[in-house]
Every structure is written in C-alpha cells, then in structure tokens.
C-alpha cells in the first residue's frame, strides 16, 4: 500500500456513496457534468448550455444511478485526483 501519501490521492477507485443504495461502483452511474449551472429566469440560456468553469479541483457534478435507485445525485469530486468526498440527492438543497 502507498503509506504516507495524502488521503485525497489514494482514493481513486471511483465509488460513489449513493444516499439510497450505499457505496457503489461508478460503473453503475451515468454522468451529466457540472451541477452548478442554472437556467436564467427568462434570459438567454447560452452560458448554461455551452459555457463551463471546468475547474481543476473540487467539482459538483450530476450523476444518475441508472443501475441502482435511478435517482439523480450531486456528487462532490476532485477532478485532479478523482477523489469523491460526498453525494446527495439532486432534489435536495445543497
């Protein structure tokens, strides 16, 4: 095992802690991308559809548990290490 390395770098196996099903392999989920974009009230939705912050670091993103509870989740994941730090139902407030 890789003793001494930072915890965020050892957790790269991509298991998502689904609030309903428990911790499951990311293989069971589909990905939709950035969960922080919002459709503007009556305005031009161009940014929401096309423009992304695309950060290198913590990222809030939408995953769909298609092979499980079939709920949409907002997963917190670091795009530099793939370390997943949390997941909640997308319908619930942050």
């Amino acid at each position: 095992m890789r003793k001494g390395s930072a915890p965020s770098r050892t957790c790269t196996d991509m298991r998502i802690p689904c609030p309903y099903c428990g911790t499951r392999d990311a293989h069971e989920f589909g990905y939709l991308g950035d969960a922080t974009t919002r459709r503007p009230d009556g305005g031009d939705p161009f940014d929401q559809v096309h423009i992304r912050d695309n950060p290198a670091g913590p990222h809030e993103e939408l995953w769909y548990h298609g092979a499980g509870c079939r709920r949409w989740l907002v997963v917190s994941r670091d795009t530099r290490t793939h370390a997943i730090t949390g997941a909640r139902f997308a319908k619930e407030p942050a």
């Binding site: 790269t12 991509m14 994941r77």
Partner: peptide, 13 residues
Amino acid sequence: DGYNSYAQRGNLP
C-alpha cells in the same frame, strides 16, 4: 472515461 478529469489517468471500467 466520461467524467471531467485533469488526472492524466483513467479508471478500470
């Protein structure tokens, strides 16, 4: 792999 990444490595699935 299908998810945002800057890691220069992918996963087993």
